[in-house]
Write a protein that binds this DNA or RNA. Sequence first.
DNA 1: GTCTATAAAGCGATAGAC
DNA 2: GTCTATCGCTTTATAGAC
Lengths: 189, 189
Amino acid sequence: MDSPDNAKTALVARIAEIFREFGYEGASLSRITEGTGLGKGSLYHFFPAGKTEMAAEVLLHIDRWFSRRIFQPLEQADALTGFDDMWRAVDDYFLAGRRICLVGAFAVDSTRDRFAAAINGYFTRWIQALQQALRHAGLNSAEAAALAEDVVAGIQGALILARALDDTDFFTRNLQRLRQRLELALVRQ
Amino acid sequence: MDSPDNAKTALVARIAEIFREFGYEGASLSRITEGTGLGKGSLYHFFPAGKTEMAAEVLLHIDRWFSRRIFQPLEQADALTGFDDMWRAVDDYFLAGRRICLVGAFAVDSTRDRFAAAINGYFTRWIQALQQALRHAGLNSAEAAALAEDVVAGIQGALILARALDDTDFFTRNLQRLRQRLELALVRQ
DNA sequence: GTCTATAAAGCGATAGAC
DNA sequence: GTCTATCGCTTTATAGAC
């Protein structure tokens, strides 16, 4: 429970929330110090390369979560339950639109250049896993590709707008419509 | 041509690109100095309140552009050409996905709190103008509201993913699909 | 209107005591 | 493993010459 590994994982999760709130540039070490309760010395003990290493580990942590809860369920060809898993995970993770997608946030400005591989890999895998699951569910390749892109982009857009409008309902109902579109496509073929 | 007003407008446009590239926190005064060719003294002459005032004027500049090219055409009830105007303006403005939406970028992190009214107003007006145009084109209120949200959120998502994947084609084809969905809805009713 | 010089604060990062 | 103190640099912002 309190193994060194778990302690560091919890620390990474805490730092992730600070990056979410302030962005990469806005998340200063003093804010991270304040938000984690750890002094700079402790932070550099865990992350010798400093802020860059913190962000890299945060992205790794996010990728592992999505792998387990979204990518792998979708990639298991035989499991039609993958879609249900994805919608549940998306709702769990983004807290009905109160939480942004940090990978998307990093993609927007020059922070992307530092973490281009992780950012590209996250979205590429999500879209490909979803597309593959849709093909296995019977859609042809073009339909599956288009719908997978629509869904992943639609989630990102809904997250931005929920925050811009300060309206979590926006996220909830847009996610609901995306889900209905996907399920309609599955029924139709 | 070189009136003081036009000179400042050109300056604001230049500063906007620097905010786009580095985000609000990442756009330091030295980067703005470098990108505009103006010293700090000159910048504070134009924007006495500093970076906050620069960003506020940038948001105003963006809002004026969208008002003229997108919101007003959509709000003119009799003009079905409003949709064409919007798609053309979106393509012009975002340079086929090479340019991000600064309003959306500001919405993501704590920068939003500084400019909440401008950010909320921009998206609210876009969605409402589009919804109103769709209703005037014959859609019922619920369909128009849903489609307007899908389109605006879809554009934001496509911009994020085009940058994340470093793939402008992603934006172009997703925008194309959004347009087809809208036109299909118009034909169907 | 633009510049240089400079102030005061905050930044990421390091050193070293404990 | 955590802390305090501190370094060197950059930040936003101001002052004042031209």
